[in-house]
Measured scan of single mutants.
Amino acid sequence: TKIIYHMDEEETPYLVKLPVAPERVTLADFKNVLSNRPVHAYKFFFKSMDQDFGVVKEEIFDDNAKLPCFNGRVVSWL
Rank of each mutant, 00 (worst) to 15 (best):
T1Y: 05
T1I: 12
T1F: 01
T1W: 04
K2N: 15
K2T: 14
K2F: 15
K2L: 14
K2V: 12
K2D: 13
K2Q: 11
I3N: 05
I3E: 02
I3A: 01
I3Q: 05
I3M: 00
I3R: 01
I4G: 02
I4T: 14
I4A: 02
Y5K: 01
H6L: 07
H6Q: 04
H6V: 06
H6R: 07
M7P: 01
M7A: 08
M7R: 01
M7Y: 06
D8G: 10
E9K: 08
E9T: 10
E9L: 09
E9W: 05
E9I: 04
E9P: 09
E9C: 11
E9V: 03
E10T: 06
E10M: 08
E10D: 11
E10G: 08
E10C: 13
E11T: 08
E11C: 06
E11N: 13
E11H: 08
E11D: 13
T12Y: 05
T12W: 08
T12G: 14
T12E: 14
T12S: 12
P13D: 04
P13I: 06
Y14I: 11
Y14F: 14
Y14C: 12
Y14A: 07
Y14P: 00
Y14W: 06
Y14Q: 15
L15P: 00
L15M: 15
L15Q: 15
V16M: 06
V16E: 04
V16G: 01
V16R: 01
V16I: 14
V16F: 01
K17I: 11
K17H: 12
K17T: 13
K17W: 14
L18Q: 01
L18F: 01
L18R: 04
L18I: 12
L18H: 04
P19I: 00
P19F: 04
P19T: 06
P19Q: 11
P19S: 11
P19Y: 09
V20Q: 05
V20W: 03
A21Y: 05
A21T: 09
P22G: 04
P22R: 04
P22H: 05
P22L: 03
P22C: 06
E23W: 07
E23F: 02
R24Q: 08
R24S: 13
R24H: 10
R24I: 07
V25A: 09
V25L: 07
V25S: 01
V25C: 08
V25E: 04
T26C: 05
L27N: 00
L27H: 04
L27V: 00
L27Q: 00
A28T: 04
A28Y: 11
A28F: 06
D29E: 06
D29K: 03
F30K: 07
N32C: 08
N32S: 11
N32V: 08
N32W: 04
N32A: 10
N32E: 11
N32K: 14
V33E: 10
V33I: 09
L34D: 01
L34Q: 02
L34E: 02
S35Y: 11
S35E: 10
S35T: 14
S35G: 13
S35R: 12
S35L: 14
S35N: 11
S35M: 12
N36D: 10
N36F: 13
N36G: 12
N36E: 11
R37N: 05
R37I: 09
R37W: 06
R37G: 08
R37K: 13
R37D: 05
R37S: 06
R37H: 15
P38G: 15
P38K: 13
P38T: 12
P38Q: 14
P38E: 13
P38V: 12
P38F: 15
P38S: 13
V39C: 10
V39L: 09
V39P: 06
H40Y: 06
H40F: 04
H40R: 14
H40V: 08
H40C: 10
H40E: 12
A41S: 11
A41C: 13
A41D: 15
A41V: 10
A41Q: 12
A41H: 14
Y42H: 03
Y42N: 04
Y42Q: 06
Y42E: 05
K43V: 03
K43M: 05
K43T: 07
K43D: 03
K43W: 00
F44G: 00
F44H: 01
F44P: 03
F44N: 04
F44T: 03
F45Y: 14
F45C: 01
F45P: 06
F45V: 05
F45G: 02
F46S: 02
F46P: 00
F46A: 04
F46Q: 04
K47L: 06
K47M: 10
K47R: 10
K47S: 10
S48E: 08
S48T: 14
S48C: 12
M49D: 14
M49Q: 13
M49T: 14
M49N: 15
M49E: 10
M49Y: 14
M49P: 06
D50E: 09
D50P: 10
D50I: 07
D50S: 15
D50F: 08
D50V: 10
D50H: 15
D50A: 12
D50M: 07
D50K: 15
D50Q: 11
Q51Y: 08
Q51S: 13
Q51L: 09
Q51W: 07
D52F: 07
D52T: 13
D52H: 15
D52A: 10
D52P: 12
D52N: 11
F53D: 15
G54E: 14
G54W: 02
G54H: 15
G54T: 15
V55F: 13
V55R: 06
V55G: 09
V55H: 11
V55A: 12
V56D: 11
V56Y: 15
V56T: 15
V56M: 15
K57L: 12
K57T: 13
K57Y: 15
K57S: 13
K57I: 12
K57N: 10
K57V: 15
E58M: 09
E58D: 10
E58L: 15
E58V: 14
E58P: 00
E59P: 06
E59F: 05
E59K: 00
E59C: 08
I60V: 11
I60F: 00
I60P: 01
I60S: 02
I60Q: 06
F61K: 15
F61V: 12
F61G: 12
F61M: 12
D62K: 07
D62T: 05
D62R: 07
D62N: 06
D62V: 05
D63A: 05
D63Y: 05
N64W: 04
N64K: 08
N64P: 03
N64A: 04
A65S: 10
A65Q: 13
A65M: 07
A65E: 09
A65H: 05
A65F: 01
A65P: 02
K66H: 10
K66P: 10
K66T: 07
K66D: 05
K66S: 07
L67Y: 01
L67Q: 03
L67D: 01
L67P: 04
L67N: 02
L67S: 01
L67W: 03
P68V: 02
P68W: 00
P68T: 00
P68H: 04
C69K: 08
C69S: 12
C69T: 11
C69Y: 10
C69E: 06
C69F: 11
C69W: 04
F70Y: 10
F70R: 08
F70M: 07
F70C: 10
N71H: 08
N71V: 04
N71W: 02
N71L: 04
N71Q: 11
N71M: 07
G72V: 02
G72D: 08
G72Q: 04
G72H: 04
G72F: 03
R73Y: 05
R73A: 13
R73K: 15
R73C: 15
V74T: 03
V74I: 07
V74Y: 13
V74C: 06
V74Q: 08
V75R: 05
V75C: 07
V75W: 07
V75Y: 14
V75G: 02
V75H: 09
V75Q: 12
V75E: 14
V75D: 08
V75N: 04
S76Q: 00
S76L: 06
S76V: 09
S76G: 14
W77V: 05
W77T: 03
W77Y: 14
W77G: 03
W77Q: 07
L78C: 08
L78G: 03
L78K: 04
L78H: 03
